[in-house]
Simulated assay, not measured.
Amino acid sequence: MTEQLMVKQERAARTRDTLIRSAAEVFDRDGISGASLTAISSRAGVSNGALHFHFASKAALVDVVEEEALTRLLAVTNGALSLGTSRVQLLVDVTHALAEKLRGDVVLRVGFALSGETSRPRRMDLRERWRRWVEETLKQAESAGELRRGAGVQDVVTAVVAATVGFEVLGVRDPAWLSASTVARLWRLLLPTLVPAAHLAGIEAGGPRRP
């Protein structure tokens, strides 16, 4: 591969990434139906022709934004479990990480919002992916004996998913809903019903400690 070709490919990749982010920003601001390709190309600083070179239509661009958002969600949920960390603590930590990402990552935020778009076919459905991850993590916690006797996994899944998706929706207009203090308040409420009293002190509701 020649150096010139490599430079062209790198430039094309950068343009594509810029278009994805610009599209997410316009979708976030104007909604999917109100967003125009002209607004997206203008925000990205490229011509309409350059946009169409990478994406044939607005629908194709929406799909790619959603795909990128899923990649980012998986990066949040698929982190390695530190030695000695319980599954319950992992769940707490990941809800904090997700809230932080939703505050600052417009692509991820739009990807979650697309789950609520009833006018388009369900493809990735980030909210459903999140529900599945929460459920699987709680089942693993139950198998490891980390849950309080009588704590129904599905009941906890319902509470955690409803709360976190609610924070995601409310956080669009008020970022305080996605703050670490809001997520910590949720866990301070839930943990006594979820974890045996003897283990409660070992769970940090505030999520991972910052260095």
Rank of each mutant, 00 (worst) to 15 (best):
E3D: 12
L5W: 06
V7D: 15
A12V: 02
R16N: 06
I20D: 10
E25I: 07
E25G: 07
F27T: 00
D28A: 14
R29V: 04
D30A: 13
I32E: 11
G34S: 01
G34K: 02
G34P: 05
A35P: 03
L37I: 10
T38V: 11
A39Q: 13
A39I: 09
A39Y: 06
S41K: 10
S41H: 14
S42Q: 14
A44S: 03
V46N: 00
F55N: 06
A56S: 15
S57I: 07
K58E: 11
A60N: 12
A60Y: 06
D63G: 10
V65M: 02
A69P: 07
L73P: 04
V76L: 04
T77G: 03
A80P: 12
S82I: 08
L83D: 14
L83N: 12
S86Y: 00
S86M: 01
D93K: 05
H96F: 11
H96M: 00
E100F: 09
L102N: 01
G104R: 03
D105S: 08
G111P: 08
F112I: 02
A113Y: 00
L114M: 03
G116P: 03
S119Y: 02
R123V: 15
D125S: 10
L126I: 13
E128S: 15
W130Y: 15
V134C: 08
E135S: 13
T137N: 05
L138N: 06
E142H: 12
S143V: 09
R149F: 11
R149Q: 09
V153M: 07
Q154M: 13
V157N: 08
A159I: 10
V160G: 08
A163H: 07
G166C: 10
F167W: 11
R173W: 08
R173D: 14
D174Q: 07
D174Y: 06
S181R: 10
V183H: 07
A184L: 10
A184Q: 15
L186A: 05
L191R: 04
P192L: 04
T193Q: 10
L194A: 01
L194E: 05
P196T: 01
H199D: 15
L200R: 09
G202Y: 12
E204Y: 08
E204W: 05
A205N: 04
G206N: 14
P208Q: 15
R209L: 13
R210E: 13
P211Q: 11
